[in-house]
Each structure stands twice: as structure tokens, then as C-alpha cells.
Amino acid sequence: MNYSIIGFGAVGQALARAFARKSINVTVASRRPPETLMQQARAIGPTIVPGTLQDAIASDTIFLAVPFWEHREVAKQITTWQGKTIIDTTNAFGVPVEDLEGQPPAAVVAKAFTGARFVKGFNHLPAAVLAADPSVNGGSRVVFLSSDDENAVAPVAALAEQLGFAPIALGPLKDGGLLVQGRGNTWGQLIFKDLVKFK
């Protein structure tokens, strides 16, 4: 299994820190050439490997950490995303509800990635909290996962655990996805809730 993060802003770098903490290789890419990401990547850790967008797309499991509407640019890079898992960390806060055509924001993103296994996740925490060690007072920081494909959730939950988080599945995008999604001027009820799960 190989991993990539598309988008190397605050959220992309926070996710990269989670991979670096566990010495797991991950390709990071953005609109900028890979060499411009090298300094930040090296500062995070040796397993963070800058690449091109095409390098990132070649991975099995891809974190989408771009501004909301930029998902369309990424999605049109290849015609089918069959066999790939997309983990959508975007937020649509500030995106007018009417622009979403009555869909949950995650469903809008999912539709663009034809054939992918699609999971909404890792997006409810501010980047600074997401970047911090998820081991808290003997417990693990919670990340929420939501998908219309139950089979897609289990491997993403396993990855979350590998990274030190406690995954909680919230069900389909129209239900669970809305709990962790911003749109218009409102945030979902679970956004910014920094929860810790104890075994």
C-alpha cells in the first residue's frame, strides 16, 4: 500500500507530520514543482517525499488536502479512479449552499472521482491540532470517517489507527458527512470537537 497527500498547505503538512511520526513513506504534491516543497518536507521528516501531481495520483490511497473547488482540477487528471481510495479532507465553509446543488459537500467531491473508493475524514480538526501527537493522556485523538461505501471505511480506519488516531465511523455522507462539514456560513456539529478515545 502506498500513500500520498495532494495539497501541502497547513492540513497537508499536518497529515505529513502524522506519517513522519510513524516513519511511514508518503508522497506529497501540490501545484508547485516538487523541489519547492523539499525544504518543508525535509523539516517534517525523511519519509516525506515531494513529488509531482502525477506521482501522487499513482498512489493507492490519496489524501485530498486542497481548497474545496480545487478538487475538480485534481479529479480530471485521470479518467477513472478505479482501485484508488480518496480521503477527502476538504471543507466547504464559505461555499454558498446553492453552489452545492442540494448535495452534501463531500458528495460533490465524491462525484468528481469516478470509480474511487471515497471516504470523508481527517477534516474536523484545525490543522495545528491534527499536526500534534494524537496520543493524549494515554488515549488517542479521534478522527471521524464517513462514506457511502462501507468497504472503503475499514482500510482507512486501519490507516488512522496506524497513524495513532482513534477512527469513528459516522455512516453515509448524507448523514455523517454533514456532521463534519462546513458549508455556507455554518459548520457541522462535530467540527472542531477535539475528542480523545480511551481503550
Rank of each mutant, 00 (worst) to 15 (best):
Y3N: 02
T114K: 14
K76N: 14
P134H: 13
V143C: 05
D194W: 00
A14G: 03
Q189H: 06
R17C: 15
G121M: 10
P67N: 14
H71S: 04
P126M: 12
I6F: 07
T114D: 08
W187L: 15
A169G: 07
G139F: 06
A166E: 07
A110H: 10
T89L: 15
S140A: 12
F192H: 15
Q39D: 13
L179I: 05
G139L: 07
F63L: 13
A92V: 06
L179W: 14
P155N: 08
F68D: 10
A56C: 10
V136L: 02
L170G: 09
A75S: 14
G7N: 06
G177Y: 03
D99Q: 11
A154P: 07
I24H: 14
L125H: 09
G51I: 02
F113G: 05
A41N: 06
V66L: 10
D194I: 11
R32Y: 14
V49P: 00
G102R: 10
R117K: 08
T186I: 04
G139S: 04
V142Q: 02
K174G: 03
I78E: 04
Q13M: 11
T85D: 05
K111W: 04
A106L: 05
Q103G: 01
A116P: 00
Q181P: 02
I62V: 15
A18K: 05
I168H: 02
S147F: 07
F122V: 05
L179F: 11
L100K: 06
T186G: 02
I87F: 10
Q40S: 15
A127I: 03
A160L: 13
K22L: 10
L173Q: 00
V142I: 13
F93H: 09
N123L: 08
F68L: 13
A10C: 07
S59V: 01
F118S: 00
P167S: 09
F93R: 12
F93I: 13
F68S: 11
T90S: 14
F122T: 01
Q103A: 04
M38D: 12
A154F: 12
T90V: 12
P46A: 12
Q189L: 08
E70A: 15
A131P: 07
I78Y: 09
K111A: 15
F144N: 07
F144H: 04
T186L: 12
T27L: 10
G139C: 00
F165N: 04
P126G: 14
A41Q: 01
A92H: 02
T36S: 15
A20T: 00
F68R: 05
D99H: 02
A92C: 05
F63S: 14
S146N: 03
V74F: 08
V129R: 11
N185H: 11
N25A: 15
F19P: 06
K111G: 06
I78P: 08
Q189V: 11
T36Q: 08
S4P: 04
A41E: 13
A127R: 04
R117C: 08
L178G: 00
V74S: 06
L195F: 12
S135R: 09
G45N: 09
A65R: 13
R17P: 04
T52M: 03
F122A: 10
Q103P: 01
P104F: 02
L195E: 12
A127E: 03
T27P: 01
A116T: 09
L15R: 06
Q54A: 15
A43C: 04
S135Y: 04
L15S: 05
K197T: 03
P167K: 11
R117S: 14
S135N: 08
P104R: 13
F118I: 03
F144K: 01
T52F: 01
D99M: 05
Q181F: 04
F144R: 01
